[in-house]
Amino acid sequence: MYYPPARNTNNDENRRITVYGNSRLTVKPSIAEVQLGVEVRNNEVNAAQQENSQRIQQVIQSLVRLGIPQDQIQTVDYQIYPQYDYVDGEQQFRGYQVTHMLMVKSENINQVGLLIDTAVQNGANRISSIRFTVKNLDAYYQQALKLALENSVLKAQTLAKVMNVSLDPIPVEILEQTTTPPPIPYQAMAETGLVAGVTTPIEPGQIEVESKLETKFKY
């Protein structure tokens, strides 16, 4: 009776090819997030609060008239704090500052400049950040993930051909090395100057969706 030689499983385990597949998609942003608000100073805290409240309500109403849904306008910061000057080493009270910041989301990317101008014309005097992101980001990431795996297989096949070995095209291990891309920040601004008849130019640029995989194959 014939008995085939025992297979060295340890050697089989060592017969691995490890490659790193990657892909990158360039996507046009579809959502803008603008953080803006009103900052008021007054010697009396109640007066500062009242003026701030009136101006922020005017800003909100103007944005709603522009077509921004009410549920896309959210308070993200509200602060009241005293301000002091130092004269000859002594602290001197000079009033209160009240700041109310809103996060405004818009799916009309071409409207961002007009959104900012409208807010400023209606009382906003703080534009702290603008960020761009994309709707259904996960769908783009899944596409990038597929391309990264295809890239891994192609690399492994190339190496196997050079080594003159037979490659099992089904990976034995796949490790995902990708994190969700952050939104693109636009340069923060403290104040916005307006020119009659001119809309503030805002360029959203492009978002890169990247996928990286560490993939192991047997041969």
Rank of each mutant, 00 (worst) to 15 (best):
M1N: 05
M1A: 14
A6D: 09
N10M: 09
D12Y: 08
Y20F: 14
R24K: 14
R24I: 05
T26L: 10
T26K: 09
V27Q: 08
P29L: 07
S30V: 08
A32W: 08
E33P: 00
Q35M: 11
L36Q: 09
E39G: 09
E39W: 00
R41C: 03
E44K: 12
E44V: 09
Q49D: 13
Q50I: 12
S53L: 12
Q58L: 06
Q61W: 01
L63V: 02
V64H: 02
R65C: 00
R65G: 01
P69A: 01
D71K: 10
D77C: 00
P82M: 05
Q83D: 08
D85Q: 15
G89I: 11
E90T: 13
Q92F: 02
F93E: 06
R94M: 09
H100L: 05
H100V: 00
H100S: 11
L102Y: 06
K105F: 05
K105Y: 08
S106F: 03
G113W: 03
Q121W: 03
N122G: 06
N125Y: 09
F132E: 09
V134R: 03
K135M: 12
D138K: 09
A139S: 13
Y140R: 05
K146Q: 15
S152G: 02
A160I: 11
A160D: 06
S166A: 12
L167W: 06
T178A: 13
P181V: 10
Y186H: 11
A188G: 15
A190T: 14
G193P: 01
L194N: 10
G197S: 07
G197A: 10
P204I: 05
P204Q: 04
Q206D: 14
S211R: 03
K216N: 05
K218S: 15
K218F: 04
